[in-house]
Each structure stands twice: as C-alpha cells, then as structure tokens.
Simulated scan of single mutants.
Amino acid sequence: MSTIKLFLNTIKTTITNVGALLIFAIIYAILLATFFRFIWIREATLWQVLFTYAFMILIPAEFFIFQAAIIDRVRDQKFRWRAIMIDAVKFFVATIPILLLGWLLYYLLNKIALRFPAPAVPLLPVTQGPPKTQPLHWPSLLFATFRFVLLGVALPLAAIHVWIAIAGGELRSLFAGGAKAFLKRIGSAVARAFASESVLIYALGLIIFFVLPYFVLVPTFNIKGNKTEFLVFVLRLVLAYLFSFFGWVVTVGALTKSGTETAPAMSVAIAQPAEAEAAA
C-alpha cells in the first residue's frame, strides 16, 4: 500500500469509526482541560498548590493514555483498557531517554549557535521613508530550522515509533530478552522513524495538526461587535481543536499501520513473553 493511500485510508477509517473517534475526543478534551487549568491555577492556598502538583501528574498520564489508546485501537481494533494503561506506563518509561537525548542535542545546538551571533544593528539617524530591511542572518535561520526539525519532527517521530515497537504485552515484557534485545528493538524503531514512508506520513499529518491550527489561530481580523468577535474567537478555538485532534489521531494511526506492516515480527516478539506466561 502506497504511503499516501495508507494515509487517506486511515482518514477514512477514523471518520467512519464514530465510537472510537468519540472516545479519543473525550480523552483529548480532558487532556487539554487539565493542561489549561494547570496554566491558569494560582499557587495562593494549600489546596491550589496540591492541585498544581496533581495536575503535573495527571497531564503526562492523560497524554500517554491518549497515545496508547490510539496505537492499541489500531493494532487490536478494540479498546483493551488494561493493556492501554500498561502501555501508557511503558510509553512514559521509554520516552524519558528520548527527552534526555533531545535536551542534550538542543543544548549542543544552542552552544554551537553562540559561536555565530547575529551582528549588532547600528543605530542610524532617522530618515524619511520606510526603514531599510536588515540583511538576513543565515546562521540564525539555520539554527532555528535545526531546532524545529529536532523538536517538531525528529523527537516526535522517534517517540511514536518507539511507542509502536513496545506496545502490547505486559510491563515486564518491555525488557524481555535482556538489555541487548531491548536496545535492539529501540534501535530498529528509531531507524524506521526516519524512513521515507514515516517522514512523509508525519509531514502530511503535520499539515493537519499543526499548520492548519496555526493559520486558524494566529492571523488577526478586524471584526465589529463584541458578540461577533467572541463567536469568531470560539469558532477559531473549536476549529483549532478539531484540526489538531483529528490530525494527530490520523498521523499516529497511520504510523502504527505502517509500522505494523513493515515490522510485524517485532510486535510478535514483544507480545510473546506475556502470551507464553498466560498459556503456562
């Protein structure tokens, strides 16, 4: 199946499966509500401080449950909530080294960028006419591009493929076969993350869950009337929510289908320890 056909087929199956889409939407809405409540809360009383710490635990928990629900639903064609909870914990554990590696690379990028500072803009006397545009500082543009590729493409792609690789089975099956087998599975997953098919799927999804919400929220409009302005604002929020939610579900679902088709043996190998134990 071609990559674009796979992506379009995932869109079709996601739209037609209303029940699963509704469950995903509820989880995503709870995640966003918890996140914004965490931002708006004020640490003034003891209860507010406790709520702040509680939300710090709930937000990553809800995030990984959301990812596990998408991946497991695509793999099993049904919601197995016990397996989803187990996979959410596994995803959390497996994401920690990815975040640490991303932080290290981001730190190194910033250190290298300091060697190419932007030139100081001289103070020129005020003259008539439009101000002259400053020349483009290519190193700054280059490092900004590297940061976006790292944080917006490379790390999410690597994380998603690691999640797909370790999904299924019991928690202890994460390290089944020892550290060598675990690192081999993770290495294979990361290698598949940067294959052309995976990058194309993510690029198509990026248009839906990032580019479209950006163009919905960022541009400003001159609207007369407070009620009309409020309605337009609410409509823009709803559209941004729908695009980001639907785009992410489709992207992770398509990557899961692609990863399952290209590496079925890995999924079987991960699930074997739990199945063997259940049979015993």
Rank of each mutant, 00 (worst) to 15 (best):
A280T: 09
Q272W: 03
L105R: 13
A68K: 01
F35V: 03
Y53Q: 15
A165D: 09
T95C: 06
M85D: 12
L31Q: 09
L124P: 02
L114Y: 05
L105A: 09
I57M: 11
L136V: 10
E62G: 09
G259S: 05
Q272D: 13
V249M: 02
W138R: 14
L242S: 09
L204I: 01
R185M: 02
E197T: 03
L21Y: 12
F230I: 14
I201S: 06
F55D: 11
V252G: 00
T10L: 02
E62W: 14
A193L: 00
N110G: 06
V153I: 11
F215C: 05
F91P: 02
L99T: 15
W248A: 14
V268Q: 14
Y214E: 12
A195Q: 08
F24R: 00
T52S: 14
A193F: 04
A20D: 03
M1A: 14
S173N: 00
S140E: 12
L206M: 11
F182E: 04
W138P: 04
L50F: 13
W163A: 03
G225A: 13
P119H: 03
G19R: 09
G168F: 07
Q134W: 11
L171Q: 06
K132S: 14
T262S: 10
M56Q: 09
Q48I: 09
Y107A: 13
F245W: 15
P117D: 02
L105Y: 08
F209K: 04
N226E: 10
S2T: 10
P264S: 03
V149K: 07
P131N: 04
L142C: 09
E43R: 13
V232T: 08
A193S: 06
P213E: 08
L231C: 12
P119M: 01
I70W: 05
N17V: 02
D87H: 14
A274L: 01
K184A: 14
A44L: 13
T251M: 05
K132R: 13
A271H: 08
L32I: 07
L141H: 08
M85Y: 15
A240Y: 07
E170R: 06
L8T: 06
N110K: 03
F233K: 12
L217P: 03
L142I: 11
L6W: 04
F79S: 02
K5E: 10
